[in-house]
Design a binder for these strands. Structure first.
Length: 471
RNA sequence: GAGGCUGUAGGGUAGCUUGGCAAUCCUUCUAGGUUUGGGACCUAGCGACCCCGGUUCAAAUCCGGGCAGCCUCGCCA
């Protein structure tokens, strides 16, 4: 690694991801190549989410990539929110298409006309579907691996209910699943909360999100659940006859987690030696590095292979012509959670040298205890990564009692700033204009016993908001 | 979409101010040999001036335009 995380985060991040072979730039700016190891991580998220949403009765579907322009225009606010970054297909071969087709920036517009067709009766509800898709949002900002790619992957859950109550009840269930993925798989802390009306999803009623902090002390949005209310159902005429034969519009939710979160995870946990993959996200959890010479080679390799069988998701790096030191560096860069070194000296003592990627601490472990120790160390590593990340987030969450304090903290430290807010969009906008910080969300955990006055207008405060400059 | 900085082999670089390149060094890669407890060594080899124009006898170097990367700002997941 040429760059240090602490002194040059952006370049460290790009260097680590490219050299760990997770991603490659393609010739189309912003459209990046997700290489095998990053897709393997994405698949872990996918599998876990699938497993959990299936239990809620959600079924996977697949809708077309291309959306007719007229579909997209049905919901005005939504269209307006996305139109600057929609990519269009205008030609087939040399002939111009009679209607241009949008490459989906998200799938509401292609899904909902058909939902309108499929949902007729109260018996058709609730209707719960999910799609794993690639979408294109043609941003004009600098693309950054995972964090900002023009094409990215996400899940998009789309559910429809007969009543607002049912739609409301789904929100915490989905939030809980996302929280599991963030906290228990990716070792990522976050502030979960409600978006303000200004920041919510275009065309929706309310949005709930998880907000993370990057090492650069900027906030970045994680997964989100949007309550669309009846905005889309009215625009796309998704209605049903209720038990009283009365026409009703459905209440809808959408929810998503994207490949951006992989970037957040890599950025948060990595160090000056490269990436650190949280154990539950690593498809290879341990690398076994044999150390031998001509005379001991056979013996060492034999023992290394035995250990491979002992430790789940481990592999032996038996490449010739690479010194052990070279291999150490390579796997540290790639972030494999555990390294097991085994050489003649270890074999003699019936032990190995175990090194954890996060602490880099070496311990000698007797082979009979190795399986258990590895399992334990992987758990400890997960806890340690989460604890450190949480500590960083908390250290970078400050409280502002006055507006000038807010400005000062943002300027001096960055990160999140807790401050009381009256709830008016006017104050929110003015603060954003003047400081560059927006309300990332209104964290659930901050909303108890609200006292005091709005930091900006001094009216009675309704919320404690998290302000931050965001990615 | 606006501004600033940058662009030389797979990666990292020297050269650019003052045009003379037939392009420096390290690393990776390929072949062979010797090695292997924290990026081993020897020998041989492959590999680049972002693109398009212009100025000039001559352009990596100067000029114009594009594209791409990095950093701010707006927007987003």
């Amino acid at each position: 690694m040429k760059n240090k995380k602490s002194s040059n985060f952006s370049e460290w991040y790009t260097e680590a991801i490219l050299s760990a072979e997770l991603m490659e730039y393609s010739d189309v700016s912003g459209c990046m190549i997700f290489r095998a190891e990053s897709i393997a991580m994405w698949e872990k998220i996918r599998d876990e989410l699938d497993k959990r949403i299936r239990k809620l009765g959600v079924k996977n579907v697949y809708f077309p990539l291309l959306i007719p322009e007229k579909f997209l225009k049905k919901e005005a606010e939504f269209m307006e929110g996305f139109s600057p970054e929609v990519a269009w297909v205008t030609h087939a071969g040399n002939s111009r298409l009679s209607e241009k087709l949008a490459i989906r920036p998200t799938s509401e517009a292609i899904m909902y006309p058909y939902l309108a067709k499929w949902i007729r009766s109260w018996k058709d509800l609730p209707f719960k579907m999910n799609q794993w898709s690639n979408i294109v949002r043609w941003e004009f900002n600098n693309p950054v691996p995972f964090l900002r790619t023009r094409e990215f992957l996400f899940n998009e859950g789309h559910t429809a209910f007969a009543t607002k109550k049912e739609a409301d009840e789904e929100v915490p269930k989905i939030m809980k699943i996302y929280n599991y993925i963030l906290k228990d798989m990716m070792a990522l802390p976050s502030y979960a909360g409600r978006k303000t009306d200004k920041e919510k999803f275009a065309g929706g009623l309310a949005s709930f999100s998880f907000e993370h902090i990057l090492p650069s002390k900027k906030a970045i949005q994680g997964p989100a659940v949007h309550q669309d209310g009846q905005n889309f159902s009215k625009a796309y005429n998704i209605s049903f006859l209720d038990q009283n034969k009365k026409k009703q519009y459905v209440w809808q939710n959408t929810w998503a987690i994207s490949t951006r979160n992989l970037g957040v995870m890599l950025a948060v946990h990595g160090d000056d030696r490269g990436l650190v993959i949280p154990p539950k996200m690593a498809s290879k959890k341990a690398v076994i590095i044999p150390i031998y010479n001509k005379n001991t080679k056979k013996e060492v390799l034999k023992n290394a292979n035995k250990i491979k069988k002992l430790i789940p998701d481990s592999f032996v790096d038996n490449r010739k012509d690479y010194s052990p030191g070279y291999k150490f560096h390579e796997w540290e860069l790639k972030g494999i959670p555990l390294r097991i070194e085994i050489g003649p000296r270890d074999i003699k003592n019936n032990q190995v040298v175990l090194v954890r990627r996060d602490t880099l601490k070496k311990t000698q472990v007797k082979i009979p205890a190795l399986k258990k120790t590895c399992k334990q160390e992987l758990e400890n590593m997960h806890k340690n990564l989460y604890t450190n990340a949480l500590k960083f987030m908390k250290e970078n969450t400050r409280e502002a009692k006055t507006y000038s304090e807010l400005k000062q903290i943002l300027k001096k430290h960055g990160g999140f700033v807790k401050a009381s807010w009256c709830g008016s969009q006017k104050c929110e906008e003015k603060i954003k204009d003047e400081t560059g910080a927006k309300i990332t969300n209104l964290p659930f955990e901050f909303q108890k016993n609200i006292k005091g006055n709005c930091i900006f207008c001094n009216e009675k405060a309704k919320h404690i908001a998290n302000f931050a400059k965001s990615y």
